[in-house]
Amino acid sequence: MHSIIETSDSAFPAFWKELAENDPLQNPLYLQQQGAASSPVDLATTESEFEDRSFLIIARDAPVFGCSLTTHKDDRGGTHMGYFGMEASTHVNCTAIANPSNNFEPQSICLLQEHITRLMEEVKSHSVDYLDPVSCGVMSPITQVLLERGATPTVQKAQLIDLSLSEHALDRNISKSYRGLIHWGRRNLQLKTLSASNIELSRGESTDGFLQSALNLASQRFENCLGYEALLRKGNAFLVRANYQGDAIANALFVHNHKTCHYLTASTTADAPHRPILHGMI
């Protein structure tokens, strides 16, 4: 038996949590339940413009797919689909992937495709922005729907680093040239991490503007309505700051959900040396 559960359903939070714990890519920007008391995601003032149409595909009392999806209207009244200013995206229960005979059945794929098609027709969306994480090397069934309707795809590269490996094993897996760049950073940069535990202390110091500019940069770069400062304060993000010869020259922003960490963005000052700063910071 397959079914669709939407955010208005009382069972949604529990199933969403279960899916979030079993999604191999675990992007913290997507897998939080908006509006929940424990949600680290605070939305900017435009929150009310977005209607959360996220949904889950359930099979045999377990989530198989989840879709983070909102609709919003532009100034001209046109409806657009995405996710709070980012692309909409799907999540896969890796348990279902690992045991395809259990519940990863064609009906789940069909239901997912039918529902997204129905939503597009219901809201008459002018545009759909969608991110396919290609979870476990599997193209999302929603991608199939969008491609058939003429969507334009752009390929993006991402890096997965297994942090459960020992530092020695991680180091051994890095090519010699990259390792040299990292070692330069370790020798020459003084790194400081700003997170929920010490962010309050940083406020009011001379570095405050630097922190704020980093958060503003993230918001501008991704043009979404997620509050990165709130993520930082609630313990789901951290900022790494690099000092070089006593001056702050770079910062890098990461978000995480205590299992998976995503590097979002970095910036350097005009005074930063022309050296590979980011390698050492990551």
């Binding site: 692309e87 969306s125 922005d129 969608y130 396919d132 309707r149 003429g150 752009t154 680093i161 897996n173």
Partner: peptide, 28 residues
Amino acid sequence: SIDADGFGGMSHTRLKLRLIQLGFFAEA
């Protein structure tokens, strides 16, 4: 494909898609 990369991780490809539904534009 997922390949080893010089940075020590696995290179992973994802897709961004943008669909413009012209039919709905006309309707508007």
